[in-house]
Design a binder for these strands. Structure first.
Lengths: 334, 334
DNA sequence: TTGAAAGCGCTAACAA
DNA sequence: TTGTTAGCGCTTTCAA
């Protein structure tokens, strides 16, 4: 593997000049610079990243720690981050914390060890391992969920408001016993969606009851179990607000197994506009979140903080959009 | 940020001893080792990754370059790679080449620059930028698609055989004019699935005609267009073999728009068992690929090659499984 | 505009 | 078992 010295020898200059030429410094004689570039190409020279990072005390890399790579919401978000980061020459390292505080913590350690320029993460619950980043002065931005401390950059969705709106929609459609299947306690989006659901009931002077609420992992299997439980009750729900699209899969499976037609016997609204939402029968009403945009905004925020760590913290809250489809329209109204 | 010298000073030993203690070398006095660990914890010491990589001439990192982060097939594969890599203390860096040879090439350069221990990639077509890896002696493994040169490790699926089987199934169900919507020319899986489709027709003494074949990106939008084209013909297909699940979404949309019932007027089989495949009406028949397993096998192969670059190249071919659901059962047979 | 030289933090060869 | 020391490849003063 050729080094900068090999290039220098071949071009007949010092390593300092090679470094300057290859990094586009203006203070290099054009002829020399050309000679250096030629030599580099001929040798197939690739700079040694770790050596550069060691010397510069920072790598042109940002870490993105998300809680589920298999969740389309997060992959869309990831693309947003990538697109912005690449524009300015940063690489993005994707890490999957699996909604697991230990894994998250481990990835934060790795990010610190690798001396990345910054970290974007969807914090998994209450663990404050993020404090380590703050202590070290590493730039970071929270996405999807805020951090316990308020003094950090964050890009969020007004998910409570969206849940309230979705609930109001179900009420307006004439559903009587509206239930909610949300994510684990302590995960902020899960709590907010539940709170918004309760807001919606309250605004319509409905009583909310824990008998119609279930929590599970943000996955199909848990939601499947939760739905079966709810449907087995003496007074089962006639509509459900579901906290993400993976859970919606579980709920739809449960309905199918029980032979219950979605939208007729049980109205449905789920968070996240999955590509297949229009394909199920009846088409699934959803709350569409601006996942890609969350990623781009977060990346820009991170870059700004990398450039100036003293800037005041910013929280950006984006809106979500309710898309009404047939799964939430009462039969007698059709 | 504390360095190894700070830890050494605090523990009253040399940096060499700190290094040995923290890396679990057996030749350190247990008492000293304990003192070192205490000092490290008290200081919140985190080793400097680039410095270590520079000295060791290799980072405990493998790069995974996939052609589409938003494709569940690749995210499942990624989890397989992750799980195996983490077991042995390697980090995984996920890169999204977007089916774009330039981006792929760029990521390969980055992988080389960062001196990763190895690369797993789904090669986007014919570009042989992979040769750079070979030249430098960096370990790599191809997944999903083989590389032009045969002398490298690869983990593949016998996708041609699977496509043939799926086509035979459609024929057995009584479909007459079976079409195929596959990925871009030059992408090996796309070509293989088409070849398998033709194999299937041939085995049944059917003529294959290009009028029933379309290609597009491996995305919903392209498949949507392709399906509309096929359905607009004088003699439209009465069944379709679709090369992945994102494309299946596009095709199902097209059928919906045209008011054509899948499985009745047009039989369907798609590659990849998406979580929603059972939820559409009628449930979608699929060719399930062992994505997670591809990832685990590839990771183990890569680790073996990192350990011994002289071992003979291995190609592992895994099977796919046809899951027959109602979308490929002729109405008169139900 | 260029070169010489120091040094980023770590590990490993060598010496004690 | 421990310490001393060289050096991985690069960037960046500092001096010329």
């Amino acid at each position: 593997m050729p080094t900068i010295s090999d290039v220098a020898a071949r071009a007949g200059v010092s390593t300092a000049t090679v470094s300057r030429a290859l990094n586009g410094k203006a203070t290099v004689d054009p002829d020399l610079a050309a000679r250096v570039r030629t030599a580099a190409t001929e040798l197939g020279y690739q700079p040694n990243g770790p050596a550069r990072a060691l010397r510069r005390q920072e790598a042109a890399v940002v870490a993105l720690i998300i809680s589920d790579v298999e969740n389309p919401f997060f992959t869309a978000l990831a693309r947003g981050v990538e697109d912005v980061a690449h524009e300015v020459g940063y690489s993005v390292v994707l890490c999957n914390s699996d909604e697991n505080a230990d894994k998250e913590n481990r990835y934060i350690d790795i990010a610190i060890q690798e001396r990345v320029a910054g970290v974007i993460l969807s914090p998994s619950g209450t663990a404050t391992s993020v404090a380590k980043l703050a202590n070290r002065g590493t730039a970071y931005v929270a996405v999807d969920r805020p951090l316990p401390e308020q003094d950090s950059d964050a890009v969020l969705v007004d998910t409570r408001q969206a849940a309230k709106q979705a609930t109001a929609h179900l009420i307006a459609q004439g559903y009587e016993r509206i239930g909610c299947i949300t994510g684990p306690a302590g995960v902020r989006t899960a709590d907010d969606r539940l709170a918004g659901y309760r807001d919606g009931l309250k605004a319509a002077k409905r009583r909310s009851t824990t008998r119609l609420v279930r929590r599970s992992e943000y996955k199909a299997a848990g939601a499947h179990r939760a739905a079966l439980e709810l449907l087995s009750q003496a007074e089962p729900p006639d509509a459900l607000l579901i906290a993400n699209s993976a859970m919606a899969v579980g709920v739809l499976q449960a309905l199918q197994e029980r032979g219950i037609r979605a939208g007729r016997e049980v109205g449905l609204v789920a968070f996240d506009d999955a590509p297949w939402a229009e394909l199920v029968d009846p088409p699934l009403s959803v709350v569409a979140q601006p996942a890609y945009e969350i990623g781009t905004v977060a990346a820009r925020l991170l870059l700004a903080r990398i450039a100036d760590n003293s800037r005041p913290p910013t929280t950006t809250t984006l809106g979500a959009r309710l898309i009404e489809r047939a799964s939430s329209v009462q039969l007698d109204r059709r």
